[in-house]
Design a binder for these strands. Structure first.
Lengths: 255, 255
DNA sequence: TACGGTTGTCTATATAAATAGACAAATATT
DNA sequence: AATATTTGTCTATTTATATAGACAACCGTA
């Protein structure tokens, strides 16, 4: 009885293998209370019945989740959930994790993977209110939580206005501190665009995702207090591992 | 040569059929410039070569997109793109489409599918700051743009405070006007949580999606100017058809 | 009208996914 | 020690995916 959490019935002839649909359903079900207090999943036979498939199909799904590091199977005992949590990322006017560069405190960390100074592509120039081709600093980074990759980001900065941004970033590993060292004491998030896509092969490799996983993609603009854009970043989050929490600063006076 | 837009190489033995991966890649590629000025896709043979698969596999993908209404194949001429656009949904302090109930103006429209007064489930009670089990009005609706379904939503309202909400909603087909008629002149969005999932069978049916599609899910809370929550809604958007645009009201005074 | 380029249809074969059944191996309980 | 429960492994069969090749049907143009 128990787990009627499996409401997401699965379809056939969809181009998505049943075992993968079931793996996705189990992964999703974990956060919504699949499994008992001890983190034990219902036995394979029961799951097979719930999903209306053969036991071997469920086993394929579980096997995939085991190699993802989400489940652990113990012969004779059962199958257990390893990591139930989902990180919540705040996005507000004062969002500071922005390019997922550091300062997440607690369990967060981020690493700069590569950087360079290039002429601004069209979309970057538009976002930063620069003329196309103007020199911009581009920084790629990967954000981690509990040693698992959570997000990967590319951030751009106006190289004319912030010529010393890169050394500051490398030194402080914090956008806020790097801006401060560049003479910008405060900045605010002015715009965030959210989209969702299937993971690319790069996503799968870098974020250690399962094929067919989903990524949340954000396009964010930070500006100084005059409204002039100072940072543009594109970030790809593992949708399995994060929620984006958008706060609208409720208790402020109305305009 | 042209379309090296196909960067998203496809993987095998992933549990996702090649034809579906290719369909997803083409669907995604459309918005980023796949196809020439006239909206014509590269010929099947060329696509097959680009993706490194057999022509028949590409044909399966195209056939799926044709029945999705995204492509149109004409014998002897080529395959053409039907709908390139993607709707942008704003989410800000003053977001009013909220439960995707109406007032989107322009080309937007929404229809109430069902409604009822029930005891509040735990998450709804928490969001509305009510005691669990308190009576709440629940309204399900589907939002349309250009006659294609864009989103489906469930909204909850405190039935004690707004006992006449339902008739007002049915009459005005607008949350804002229904609140106004209930004596609440203004309200603001205080919180929006964004997640992404694979489409369920319900999503596929109601939003007319392809199996394996992605949905953006938002959990939103609107509150009156005292900060008391007045509406909680869960909305599921077709990720192929919308971007969520989050504005943080940049030009306001700091706190 | 003839031709190159394109989509549509057919047959055949190989590989991956799914079902079915049986039994071994480990675990916990009686 | 015996038993029921659960995961692990094996064989066999069917269905869905993917590849391969050939040719018909249709379009635009030379």
């Amino acid at each position: 009885m128990a787990s009627d959490i499996i409401r997401s019935v699965i379809g056939r002839r969809t181009g998505i293998a049943l075992w993968r649909q079931i793996a996705d359903a189990i992964r999703a079900g974990i956060s919504s209370g699949l499994g008992d207090e001890s983190g034990r999943l219902p036995p394979e036979m029961e799951l097979a019945e719930q999903f209306g498939v053969n036991r071997h199909t469920v086993r394929s799904a579980i096997s995939a989740l085991v190699s993802e590091g989400i489940l652990r199977a113990e012969q004779g005992r059962g199958t257990f959930i390893i990591k139930p949590e989902r990180l919540t990322y705040p996005i507000s006017k004062r969002t500071r994790f922005s390019a997922t560069l550091a300062e997440q405190g607690q369990r967060g960390e981020s690493r700069i993977m590569s950087h360079g100074i290039n002429p601004a592509p069209e979309d970057v120039a538009r976002a930063l209110a620069l003329s196309p081709g103007a020199p911009v600093l581009q920084v790629r980074s990967v954000g981690f939580g509990d040693n698992t990759p959570i997000s990967r980001a590319t951030a751009w900065f106006d190289n004319e206005r912030f010529p010393e941004m890169l050394p500051h970033l490398l030194r402080f590993n914090s956008v806020t501190k790097a801006f401060a060292a560049s003479g910008l004491d405060d900045y605010v998030r002015v715009s965030t665009l959210v989209e969702a896509y299937h993971a690319t092969l790069d996503d799968i490799e870098i974020l250690r995702l399962a094929p067919g996983s989903i990524v949340l993609v954000t396009y964010a603009i930070n500006a100084d207090l005059d409204g002039k854009p100072v940072q543009y970043s594109k970030t790809r989050f593992s949708a399995d591992r994060v929620s984006l929490q958008i706060e609208q600063d409720p208790h402020q006076p109305e305009d």
